[in-house]
Structures are given as structure tokens and as C-alpha cells.
Design a protein around this nucleic acid. Structure first.
Length: 261
DNA sequence: TTTCATGTTCAGCA
DNA sequence: GTGCTGAACATGAA
């Protein structure tokens, strides 16, 4: 599920399904997904609260509950869904919240890399976790000044949520392919103008994915996301894609479009 | 059967 | 302090 566009799609879904609903009952099926709070205080903290808005910062979701906020990170395989009465829960439901209209809000997560907790507000959470600005909202100038101050590989910088929040492994590869920048290029050796363009490019790529509800098959030609596999043809028909590990993550790139530093 | 995966964090080391 | 690597978390898909 979980990079910025996927999380935004979930946010919009929840906005349509459960905005204004009140949480009437809470069942924690797996306490392992709770972060920094036990099942009892979590349950009593949200029971009886009304969902007044649903926000997002980077990959983090926030259900605003009037005076406090439930923070949700989908990890690698997390999902939030609203089920009608009698509809069967998914196999890996970790948390169920009954709503005032009889339906249920379910957190499903096979791999349990996600986490859920309570915080004072989105702003407080972002500050205490030192998250960078949201990749969709950040001004290109700030994108450039933040990323350009690191000597690390640009791919690692894009993945580091402290610099910019929301870009993950897939979209980092896409942005670098669009920009024709090699993943190991040291960020601080890219000219300021290139970093400005990269900021704009990231926002464009993320927005394009949100617009098609992250169904990559609906992306126009020219996107790496559609052919992100070893040995596939470069979307610019410039040869075959290759992969390498950068920052511990597999990176796909075109060795002809993206020259090594 | 083995390997890899859209994420994050931490230990160990240069 | 900086930056890199590998491991850990748990499960399913190829």
C-alpha cells in the first residue's frame, strides 16, 4: 500500500466513508501494531470520539478525533477499510473500530510493519518525529535547500523521511528516472537548478499517481513504474533496465539515461 | 524451497 | 557528527 500516493488514496476513501462517524467500540486483535500505548488506554482514548477530519503528512495518516489525533502508518502492507455489518473481516485484521452507523473501520496488515498510536495533533507528531515537509506540498526551493545539504546518494536522501516526507522506494526510482539522475549521485553535487526541478518532478509524479488511484497500468507511457523490472525495456527505449542496491533498497534505473556520477 | 517485497529502526563499523 | 551495511520485524507471492 504505502507511499504518499497510496496513503492519499486511502485518506480520500476514508473521507468519503467515515467522516463524521463516531467510534463506538474498539477491539485490538493484535497489540503489536500499537505504538507507545497499550490496548486499554488506546481503546478508552478513542471510544466515543467523532472523526472530524482525516489528514495526511508524507506516509502518515491522522484521524482527527476532537482534541486528539490517531496516527496511522501503513507500514508495508497495511490498509484501512470500512465494512458494512455482516461483511467478513479480512484475514489479518489487527484492529476493529465499530462506528455509530453500524459499520466498522478495520486496520488490516499481514506483515505487521504498520503502527497506530495517539498524539496531540498532526503538527505535534511531525515535529516530534522530525519529519520533513510533505513531498506534495513542499516548495521546490525548500526541496532543493534540504536535499542539497547532504553528501549522501540522492536516492538515500529521497528515501529519508527527515529530509522530505512521503517518497518511498518506487517513487524515488521514478523521480530519478524522469530526471535522468543516477541513484548514487551525491545530492550536494547536483546543481541547485536540478534540485529545484527534482522537487517539481516529485510533486508531478506523485500527483499523477494519485490521479489514477495508483493503478500503474493507467499511467501514460514513459513512466518507469510500469516496467520496473530487471531486464525490461527502458520507457525511453534506450536499452534495458538494470538494478542495484542503494541505501539497502533495490533501485531500478536505465544505465544509458542515468549516467553514474 | 528459496528469495524478495511500496518501511522503519538500530547496531556496528569506517 | 556523517554515512554505509546488514539485520530485524512477519507474511505472502513468485
Amino acid at each position: 500500500m504505502p507511499e504518499l500516493p497510496e496513503v492519499e488514496v486511502v485518506r480520500r476513501y476514508l473521507e468519503g466513508e467515515c467522516l463524521g462517524a463516531t467510534i463506538t467500540m474498539v477491539k485490538v486483535h493484535d497489540r503489536g501494531i500499537l505504538d507507545g500505548i497499550g490496548p486499554r488506554s488506546f481503546s478508552s482514548g478513542i471510544r466515543g470520539r467523532r472523526i472530524s477530519s482525516i489528514k495526511r503528512h508524507g506516509k502518515q495518516l491522522f484521524l482527527e478525533l476532537g482534541g486528539e489525533s490517531m496516527n496511522v502508518h501503513l507500514g508495508m502492507t497495511g490498509d484501512l477499510l470500512v465494512l458494512g455489518q455482516g461483511e467478513p473481516s479480512p484475514r489479518h485484521a489487527r484492529l476493529s473500530m465499530h462506528l455509530s452507523d453500524g459499520r466498522s473501520l478495520i486496520y488490516d496488515d499481514p506483515r505487521k510493519f504498520g503502527s497506530i498510536g495517539l498524539c496531540a495533533s498532526m503538527e505535534a507528531f511531525v515535529n516530534s518525529h522530525r519529519l520533513g515537509p510533505d513531498a506534495l506540498l513542499v516548495a521546490p526551493e525548500e526541496f532543493a535547500s534540504r536535499t542539497g545539504r547532504s553528501g549522501r546518494a540522492i536516492k538515500s536522501v529521497l528515501l529519508d523521511q527527515h529530509f522530505i516526507a512521503g517518497i518511498g522506494n518506487l517513487y524515488a526510482d521514478e523521480v530519478l528516472f524522469q530526471m535522468r539522475v543516477h541513484p548514487t549521485q551525491p545530492a550536494d553535487r547536483l546543481p541547485d537548478g536540478r534540485l529545484l526541478d527534482m522537487g517539481r518532478c516529485a510533486a508531478r509524479v506523485l500527483q499523477a499517481s494519485i490521479d489514477i488511484a495508483t493503478d500503474f497500468d493507467l499511467l501514460p507511457n514513459g513512466y518507469l513504474l510500469r516496467s520496473r523490472k530487471e531486464g525490461e525495456e527502458c520507457p525511453r527505449q534506450n536499452g534495458r533496465l538494470r538494478s542495484m542496491k542503494v541505501g539497502g533498497r533495490t533501485s531500478y534505473y536505465c544505465p544509458k539515461c542515468q549516467r553514474p556520477p
